[in-house]
């Protein structure tokens, strides 16, 4: 409240319209792999795919964290579940053995559906329990659930245990050669675009209005006759499904999954994308993930302690620019 009031009291600074900044980010993200490919730099096209996938994970978390105020330190669970679904499905298709009586698949579309469905289902359970708590307790309980799944993966030898498992051949997508870095990057960007469209419509719709109110003032929402709990739970589940989809793509990017995808580090990184870019801003996680990937690439080449530099940037964002990168460029967030 103080933040919003200060924003209004401050003399009007030149701000860029948010849609223009978003459009510029989208155009740059699309140009990135195209230019890299044209310049004969497939590694840079692959990096664009990585940025798109991490952004996708962040777009998922942003629904829960940014719009719904649910600080989940457990989204690695959904990221990892998506990854394991991709790897297990590809493995089952490769060996012809199937899994749980279902045939495996080495096609991305059915894998994505399965990854999103399983992430959503697990999120329904985790959310139904975690959302009965608030604040630090919510953070800790989502972390605890994710750690349970992490240890489950480690102790399950059939799926590689601590070593994880490989995906020998990148899963396929109709009309695309997913092994080509440019094609794969475009598939990832397509998934990101779809998630952004969904996220935009959701948050502008009645559901999004109710969610924003549930974050800021749940009693106000209840006083209007709407229960905050199911609104938040639905947002949590959709959020998890999107992050699960990102996990499936991430497994294909790397050609393997490991329990590290499920670890709390991963949850922390996804939170960093969102905060860095601007919580509750449509393109916040995209800006955050791109910045993260560049910092990692540029600073990581110079020093293994690059995360310290990241930490300083993050500290700056939290202390001085509560709205993250998007907030810096466009000012405080507004929802009609």
């Amino acid at each position: 409240m103080a933040e919003a009031a200060a924003e209004i009291a401050a003399p009007a600074r030149r701000r860029l319209p948010e849609w223009a900044v978003n459009a510029a980010i989208a155009a740059a993200l699309l140009a990135w792999p195209l230019l890299a490919d044209a310049a004969g730099e497939p590694w840079w096209a692959g990096l664009a795919a990585k940025a798109a996938i991490l952004a996708l994970a962040g777009v998922g978390l942003n629904l829960a964290l940014g719009y719904g105020g649910m600080v989940s330190l457990g989204h690695a669970a959904f990221f990892g579940i998506g990854g394991y679904v991709a790897a297990i499905s590809a493995d089952a298709a490769f060996s012809g053995a199937g899994v749980l009586g279902l045939p495996g698949s080495d096609r991305m579309l059915p894998i994505w559906l399965a990854a999103m469905a399983l992430s959503a289902l697990v999120a329904l359970g985790i959310g139904a329990i975690s959302l009965r708590t608030e604040g630090v307790y919510f953070i800790m309980i989502t972390l605890a659930f994710a750690q349970m799944i992490y240890y489950l993966a480690i102790s399950w030898p059939a799926y590689g245990g601590e070593d994880g498992m490989p995906i020998y051949l990148r899963n396929g997508f109709p009309g695309m050669d997913t092994n080509a870095p440019l094609d794969f990057a475009l598939v990832c960007l397509g998934a990101l675009a779809a998630a952004l469209l969904l996220s935009w419509r959701l948050t502008e719709a009645r559901f999004g209005r109710a969610l924003i109110c549930a974050r800021m003032n749940p009693l106000r929402l209840a006083t209007l006759g709407m229960e905050p709990f199911p609104v938040k739970l639905a947002a949590f589940v959709i959020s998890a499904a999107i992050t699960g989809l990102a996990g499936a793509l991430y497994a294909d990017l790397n050609g393997y999954v490991s329990p590290a995808m499920l670890g709390w580090h991963t949850s922390g990184e996804i939170i960093v994308f969102v905060i860095l870019g601007g919580t509750g801003r449509l393109f916040g996680p995209v800006a955050g993930a791109v910045l993260y990937v560049w910092l990692e690439t540029l600073l990581g080449g110079v020093t293994v302690h690059w995360q310290m530099g990241l930490g300083l940037v993050l500290l700056g964002v939290v202390l001085f620019g509560r709205g993250g990168l998007i907030g810096l460029l466009c000012g405080a967030r507004r929802h009609g």
């Binding site: 409240m1 209005r209 924003i212 109110c213 800021m216 003032n217 009693l219 006083t223 507004r334 009609g336």
Partner: peptide
């Protein structure tokens, strides 16, 4: 007073 500060009066 309890209103959603991020939304407009109309919102």
């Amino acid at each position: 007073t309890s209103v959603a500060l991020e939304l407009s009066a109309l919102g």
